[in-house]
Structures are given as C-alpha cells and as structure tokens.
Design a protein around this nucleic acid. Sequence first.
RNA 1: CGGGGUGUAGCGUAGCCCGGUAUCGCGUCUGCUUUGGGAGCAGAAGGUCGUAGGUUCAAAUCCUGCCACCCCGACCA
Length: 492
Amino acid sequence: MAFEKIKRSENYSEWYNNLVKNADLAEHSAVKGCMVIKPYGYAIWEKMQQQLDKMFKETGHSNAYFPLFVPKSLFEAEEKNAEGFAKECAVVTHYRLKSDPNHPGKLIVDPEAKLTEELIVRPTSEAIIWNTYKGWIESYRDLPILINQWANVVRWEMRTRLFLRTAEFLWQEGHTAHATKNEAIFETKQMLDVYTEFAETFLAVPVVKGVKTPNERFAGADDTYCIEGLMQDGKALQMGTSHFLGQNFAKAFDVKYTNKEGKQEYVWATSWGVSTRLMGALIMAHSDDEGLVLPPKLAPIQLVIVPIFRTDEEKELVFAEAEKIKKSLTQINISVKFDNRDTHKPGFKFAEWELKGVPLRIGIGPRDVANQTIELARRDNKTKQVINASELLTVIPELLKDIQNAMYQKALDFRNENITEVNSWDEFVSVLENKGGFIAAHWDGTSETEEKIKELSKATIRCIPLDNKLENGQCVLTGNPSSQRVLFAKAY
RNA sequence: CGGGGUGUAGCGUAGCCCGGUAUCGCGUCUGCUUUGGGAGCAGAAGGUCGUAGGUUCAAAUCCUGCCACCCCGACCA
C-alpha cells in the first residue's frame, strides 16, 4: 500500500482527493466528471441509505421509481425550474448507432434515428413526477402522496470533485403532494428535521438549519430550507435541502383535486433530497492526516481484530481467541472484521485500518491470551487501553457510543468556534480571509447587496438560521437597517 | 469554458530544454528469514511513454489536435 501522506494543512483539496482514493472510497472513471464508487465507499453509502430509508418510512413515506428520461416538453413546463437547470442538462437526441462506413469497426450516431422529441436526462424529477401525479390525484381522498425515490441524476457541472460535485450522482428525492399549504409546509420542515437528526446523530456533523435567500432558492420553489455543515478547512457545505414548492408544479402540470366542498383546488407540493455529497461531508468533517475517521453508526466495519503471533502454535492460539471475540461481538450486533491475512504484518494492518477509518481496533497476541487481556485502540483520538477480556461485551458498545459522541462534540466545538459575529465590512473581509467559517452579519435583505458581497468576497449567504433571534442592526455592506443576522461563508 | 500546470509499469517518479525505444523507489511474483506500529535479503516479472496525427533515417523528447486530472477563476438548482 503506497499511501502518499498529504497533510490537511498543506493542501486541503489534494489531501481530500488522496484520501478518497487511498481509503478505497471512489476513483475517477473513464467518463468525464463521473466517478466509480468502490465497494468500501459504497458500503458507507448503503449504511446512510438504510438509515435514511428507515427514517423516511417512519414518517410515512414509501419508495417508488420514476424514469431517468424526461421529455423536453414536460421538462420545460415549470418555467423557473427548467430555466434553473437548462445550463446543465444532458440531452438524448438519438436512439440508435450504426457502423461507420468510413471507419470499419467504429460506430456513428445514425442520423435516421433522431428522436422527434429530445429526452432530458433528469437533473431532478419534479417534472416527470408531477406529470405522473396528475393522473393519481382527483379528490382530497387521494392526498397526501408521500413518495421517495432512490435514484441517480445528472447535472453537467463544469468542475467536478469526487463525491462533492459529480456529473452523475446518487441521491434520494422525496416528492409529496398535499391538500393544504400548511400541511406542505409542515412536511418541508419535518424532512428538514429528519435530515438534521441524520446529520447530527449518524454523520456526527452538526448543522445549521435555515432557509435560503431568494437568490439561492431551488428553481421552482417558494422556499428552500437547508442544512449547512462546516468542513475542517472553514468552508461550508450544503448537506441537504427541503423545498416548499407551493402550487408551482401543480399549476404547471395542472394537478387539481376536489375538496370536501366539491371545489377544485391546486395541490401543494414539497421536494427534498440528500446525495452522495454526504460522503464528502463525512470525509471532510472528521478525517485527519492518517486517513478516514468514521463515526461508529455509519462504519461498515466498526471493529477490526488484528492478530499478532510468531509461531504456528501462537497463531493457532491467537486465532482461536480472535474468532471467539468476533463471535461474541457479532452476537451483540457489532460489525467485526477479523483481519486474518497472513500476507501482512500487524503494523501494516494497523496503518491500513486507520486509513480506512475503522473506529475501534483490537490487537491481540500471545501475551493477551495468556493474561486474558485485550488491547483496544480508538481511531478518533488515537488512544489505546488494555482491558480485561471479560469486560469486552460491556466496554465495546460503550466505547462505540463514546466515539460517536466525541466525534460529534469535536465537530460541534469546531463549528461553534467558527461562527463569528462581525459588524463591519473590514471585519467581514478579515475574518473571511484569516479565519474562515460562518460569518454572522447583518444584511439589508436585498438581492443586490447579496450579489455585491458575493462578488467582492466570494462568500454567499448560506442561510438565514431558523432559530435566529431578531436583533436590530446595520447591513455589513450598505449600512441599511437589518432585523437579523444571516450566515455567510465560502462554500463548496 | 478562460489562465496556469501535469500525464512515463498497479502507485509515485527521472529522462524532455539539447531527438538515438526508458531511471529510481514503493508495490507485485518466487525463495528463505521475519511478525506487539507500515519487515530483511536474494532473484524475477511488469512499459503501444495519455491519445490521434505531423516533422524526421530515427520521437517519451520537436509541432498540432483531442482526452483526463490538479491549482486559480467563471458556473454550482
């Protein structure tokens, strides 16, 4: 394993790229901007999926699946949405290839096989889904519709980065239809809470819940709620969004229902999504110069056992003990890997599992077997302790909880230390350049000022926090009156 | 897409300016010795030099197009 160590402090983005590759999470593919998610990386994504899926179902949602392609006429139906995505759409124009008469063995697009209507590869599925919902909704009795789909989408980004922004990515998108505005708003906020709980409890990444400014709103939404996380380099990452779509899609696709009074009304909508970008959040929020650091709740392997031995007799002894440990821990639902490879030495294995972020490691050798002890090493803070073998089943689950909590606490402390209140433009620029992180500043509420600030500083308004306290002040740029602070940051 | 850089064995690289088919390290394979923090010695295998053209007796090296990646911008629902 040739792991070229790059420090976060030296080159954060190179560190990130190397980590993703060396920890076996993903690699670039032969397709521009698209990645191959490798088994270890996909295993983490599967853990995320399983948990989110459970939470969606607990809040009454069902999974379904809609087509990858959207006919152009449907795609353009909701004008703002279409406009917002138009610049980054992959378009299917033909349905057949044929042999190239001029270059044997090569293929060309068959000009005879032009589609009468182009198909858009979905960048998001509102259009195809609302076109479908039209056929499903007639009466208030048909509502609400609470559907989620796990899918891939394509957004032709100019500049891509593994997990953070790829041309094709995996995500889930919830699309719900409601009889009333209040119910839809409740749904929007409920799903934001689900995302928040997931981010904080499972990813161990604290997030700010907030609402986007009109500039940053999802194209076609009346309101976009989001959770914003802070990465170790001081840049913010949008980790999930939940949109209140109002009646925009219902009107665009003419989706009406008959209410109890017999009157026709447009349906209210929401949509919400998180993507494989969360993998990027997970990596950037916790990992260190030794590699990945995974929170126990999402680690595909929670504990690895590395045997240490010299002779065949020792090997036999140690392996027997290791198998015993594995079995007893597996029985209490801990995911254990016994690294019984005889092709690598312990030191190599220690380093490799650290690189892969396994939260806990047991090192066991003849000495431990003789003393009935076990050496336990934590990945998050690199501490080691020796415990009595009999304590195993009580100590390990506690330690896993500790690690999960410690990781969250560490990220939370970092995040809190990096929310800085500023009251002048000079301060704003200085904090942004020297410290980074979130900047809590007054803003006069206009798009013009928001854009001007972005232009001058590269910082955007990440969100208006939902729990914001009202406070009179003056806009950090224009000096105009403001009633609350908003969070600015440079973002991924 | 604009500016800058890079592309040579699985990975990291030397060679490029000044043309003559390639250096070193890691890894891989074989054997022996090793094993409580990335093992040692000996031997071996592995290359259309990103790709397509061009110049030349001869191209990793010079020229052009294309592709990919990195850094800085633009873009980012």
